[in-house]
Design a binder for these strands. Structure first.
Length: 302
DNA sequence: CGCCAGGCTAGCG
DNA sequence: CGCTAGCATGGC
């Protein structure tokens, strides 16, 4: 057993743990207060979150201006990496374009950070994300962990690690279809087979962002958008901008000059517009618009 | 019932 | 190349 504390005031731009873990970047965390996880919105302010990363159970909560953690081992450095705590948020916000929508999103969720999820879980999560509501993606990944992941006991409770590559690689397509994966089932299994000897995706990391995006599309079920999610939420390419339906429609109405038919052209235009940390800008907008739309059941107009 | 959800693949011109 | 039909499933 080990535990520790990280002070909010020691982090540039602070931390908003709930926004970081519930904004649809990562699907690897459970919230203690259970069933209506992520569906009821605002009530997770000081709740405990738990995950298993690199074989360690990690429990986190944010209360009174600090981040508390408890774990099976010393995970201070793991937490800092996975939650992007070393990102200089003040500087990132300074280097993004001035714009009313972006400033609203930044101020509403100040402290939200880009995660760095472990490679394989990130890949599978976003293969599953295609044509799927955000709330359902959480459920799918949770069921996958509880059915095929290794169980670790910690402080009287069971926690499930994300399934290992070789376990998913050896599944039958019907196993995942029965869990509601639909047409994504064969994609997950084929990609797991491709990564059986490279679970950390060492061979799929490229220094250059655009080359990295193309490289990732070699994986089954990974197109340009999912590749961008992996670039941003696992590999640390902070200029990556996943062009999903929300962002595309936002771009169309808000920044019509950046609207292009081809993914590459639109990606390039948006990155030129948003700045070197375009991925941060995109993630704030995505979370802000989705959340506001949920609260008002209406389109946000600014 | 129809429509849509953090899209991708295969197959066409 | 660019374009599009088809694809599973659940919720409204």
């Amino acid at each position: 057993m080990d535990s520790g504390v990280i002070l909010n005031s020691s982090l540039s731009g602070g931390l908003d743990l709930q926004a970081t873990l519930e904004s649809g970047q990562t699907y690897l965390w459970d919230r203690d207060d259970g069933e209506d996880y992520l569906s009821s919105g605002l009530s997770g302010g000081s709740a405990w979150y738990s995950s298993v990363i690199e074989g360690s159970v990690i429990r986190l909560r944010q209360v009174e201006g600090q981040l508390e953690w408890r774990s099976t081992s010393n995970v201070d450095k793991v937490i800092r990496r996975v939650l992007g705590l070393d990102d200089d948020l003040d500087q990132i916000m300074k280097m993004s374009i001035e714009d009313s929508l972006i400033e609203s999103a930044y101020s509403t969720y100040k402290g939200m950070r880009i995660v760095r999820d472990p490679f394989f879980p990130c890949v599978v999560s976003f293969i599953c994300s295609s044509q799927m509501k955000v709330e359902r993606i959480f459920g799918m990944q949770q069921r996958l962990r509880r059915k095929y992941g290794d169980k670790i006991r910690f402080e009287g409770k069971d926690y499930y690690e994300y399934p290992k590559v070789e376990v998913l690689a050896d599944l039958d397509e019907s196993d995942l279809r029965e869990m509601g994966f639909g047409y994504r089932a064969p994609y997950v299994i084929e990609t797991a087979k491709m990564l059986k000897n490279d679970p950390d995706g060492v061979g799929y990391f490229v220094e250059d962002y655009e080359q990295n995006r193309e490289k990732l599309t070699e994986l089954r079920g990974v197109g340009q958008k999912v590749a961008d999610c992996i670039c941003l939420f696992s590999l640390g390419h902070l200029e990556a901008v996943p062009l999903d339906t929300w962002i595309r429609s936002t771009i169309k109405t808000h920044y019509p000059n950046c609207d292009h038919k081809s993914y590459q052209d639109m990606s390039q235009a948006v990155r030129n517009k948003f700045g070197p940390y375009a991925g941060y800008v995109q993630t704030y907008i995505f979370h802000y618009l989705r959340h506001e739309a949920g609260r008002t059941s209406n389109i946000v107009s600014l």
